[in-house]
Design a protein around this nucleic acid. Structure first.
Length: 484
RNA sequence: GGCGAAGUGGCCGAGUGGUUAGGCAGAGGUCUGCAAAACCUUGUACAGCGGUUCGAGUCCGCUCUUCGCCUCCA
């Protein structure tokens, strides 16, 4: 069985083979750091996190590069608009670098909580100005770019592959979408900026052969991916909304410079909608992750995201996320039960489940199917545990190995210690365990004496503090109730 | 207007020709002091209209509706 990935460039699923055997070069467009991360970021980076994890599970060494955009680019290609980071710096009365650093840290905090593994390399745009200038020089030299008044533009007409990713090849219709009346030095209105001359007030600017200025917003990804992954990379990921113009421009400038294919597999993840409408900062309906985490376990959000396919839109609602929370709790509960169960004699065959899980992941990272396999497995495990034979120790170990690999290492939703008392040392965890043991013994005694008032009081009051008691055949067990 | 995606049972959400997706919610049952959990049973779903086919949610056409991109955005 081999891995198939949907390639946005060919619009079909293709069998994946890396350019260099055993090693995958992967680049994903990172955030522009001028605000806290929102649900859209979560969907994107959780999705690509699972891609990376699965590639590694499949035996590849993945070199994962995800940039940090800390240059505040203009808000459009038409030579006007504002610099977002600079605007935020004025707003917060500080300088752009502090803004970028602050929100970069915030971004990683949120991603860590979602269980998103850090990229191998996280290059910042401001740290790669020389590489970007070198790329522009290469394009000017080869006639694909031209300078006017200190600005450098890429000539779209000079690259005839323009539009192959987005399907937008009709230059006339492209131009009709651009507003008229804007003064510009461009030869063609579809040309895009590689270097912009800075005006007086502009805060972030660098020397270049053309002017004191700053790089165009498509340039950093090309320059940095080539630097760290080579001129042809295996996988480039990003949000759908970046297909055009961002990725189209990346292809144009990169392939014009190198005369080699830039990306072998383009992967685009879909949007988060709220009540069916796209979530966006400009629409003022974006859901900030830090706010969300106060009410919902970050891993529930991760699970919720993975219950739909990365190429599908994900509609966020209170009821949908609650359903996910209950579902995830069910999987966790099964795992807990399995661990605590006394060994039986029953043989449990994990192989069919493992095969179906692999098949689902190999089919363009179909996490909803993969999760449905976990649910079916959960049901089978519970049924086996309820039966008189139970599950043998050998079978139990095989199941746990699979759950570690599938549930934790691949999907990142069943962490081994999810029920541990968070943020506490091993000592205090032990102490809580000892206290609970005493309480459960007292309650068992009360039940034996038919004193249900007392036994229910212990149960109810513990529940108020977030500890849940369940009476099973083997006696009472306790667990921490995850929020929501 | 151009490019693209999509309409699945109360809700979420898979499924590219032929047997059950899965989850949540609901109903009935087993277990239980009660509760919780778990298990069992329970749903004539595929926007509409035509067409292709022995057979279509799945292919083709038309209609309706929704969404994304064409300005920064994951």
């Amino acid at each position: 069985m081999s891995l198939f990935i949907y390639n946005s460039l060919s619009r079909t699923k293709e069998e994946f083979e890396p350019l260099h055997p055993g090693i995958v070069g992967m680049y994903v467009c990172g955030p522009t750091v001028y605000g806290h991360a929102h649900l859209g970021h979560a969907k994107s980076y959780v999705s690509f996190d699972v891609v990376v994890r699965w590639l590694r599970q499949s035996g590849y060494r993945v070199k994962y590069v995800q940039n940090i955009t800390d240059v505040g680019h203009l808000t459009d290609d038409a030579d006007e608009g504002e610099d977002k980071i600079m605007k935020q710096a004025y707003l917060e009365k500080t300088d752009p670098m502090e803004i970028a650093q602050f929100y970069t840290r915030s971004f990683y905090e949120d991603m860590d909580r979602l269980g998103v593994l850090r990229p191998n390399i996280a290059p910042a745009a401001t740290g790669h100005i020389p590489e970007q200038i070198a790329l522009i020089e290469r394009l000017v030299k080869s006639g694909h770019a031209y300078e006017v008044n200190g600005n450098v533009y890429f000539s779209v007409k000079s690259f005839n592959g323009y539009g192959k990713l987005s399907g937008r090849t009709d230059q006339d219709s492209l131009q009709s979408g651009i507003r008229s009346g804007v003064r510009s030095d461009k030869r063609e209105s579809s040309d895009f900026a590689l270097w912009k001359k800075a005006d007086e007030q502009h805060l972030m600017k660098w020397n270049s052969p053309w002017s004191v200025g700053y790089p165009g917003w498509h340039l950093e990804c090309s320059a940095m991916s080539m630097k760290y992954l080579g001129e042809t990379i295996d996988i480039h990921g990003g949000g759908m909304e970046n297909k055009f113009p961002h990725h189209e421009c990346e292809i144009a400038q990169s392939e014009s410079a190198t005369r080699k294919p830039y990306v072998r597999f383009w992967m685009h993840n879909n949007m988060v909608t709220i009540n069916g409408i796209k979530m966006g900062k400009s629409l003022k309906n974006s859901v900030n992750l830090k706010d969300l985490f106060r009410e919902i376990d970050p891993l529930v959000i991760r699970f919720f995201i993975l219950q739909s396919h990365y190429r599908s839109q994900l509609d966020f609602s209170e009821t949908a996320i609650k359903a996910s929370a209950t579902g995830l709790e069910k999987l966790r509960e099964t795992r807990r039960r399995l661990r605590e169960q006394k060994p039986g004699t029953g043989v449990f065959d994990i192989l069919p489940f493992a095969l179906r899980f692999t098949e689902a992941m190999d089919d363009d990272f179909n996490t909803p199917i993969a999760i449905s396999v976990l649910f079916e497995l959960s049901k089978a495990i519970n049924a086996a545990l309820d039966s008189s034979e139970g599950i043998s120790d050998t079978s139990r170990q095989a199941i746990e190995t699979f759950l570690d690999r599938a549930g934790q290492e691949t999907l990142g939703i069943l962490s081994q210690n999810s029920q541990a008392v968070e943020g506490n040392s091993g000592e205090s965890v032990k102490r809580v365990g000892a206290i609970m043991k005493i309480l459960l013994e007292l309650r068992a005694e009360a039940r034996k004496n038919m004193d249900f008032t007392l036994s229910d009081r212990i149960r109810d009051q513990l529940l108020d503090t977030g500890i849940e008691i369940k009476d099973t055949k083997e006696g009472a067990v306790w667990s921490e109730k995850s929020n929501l």
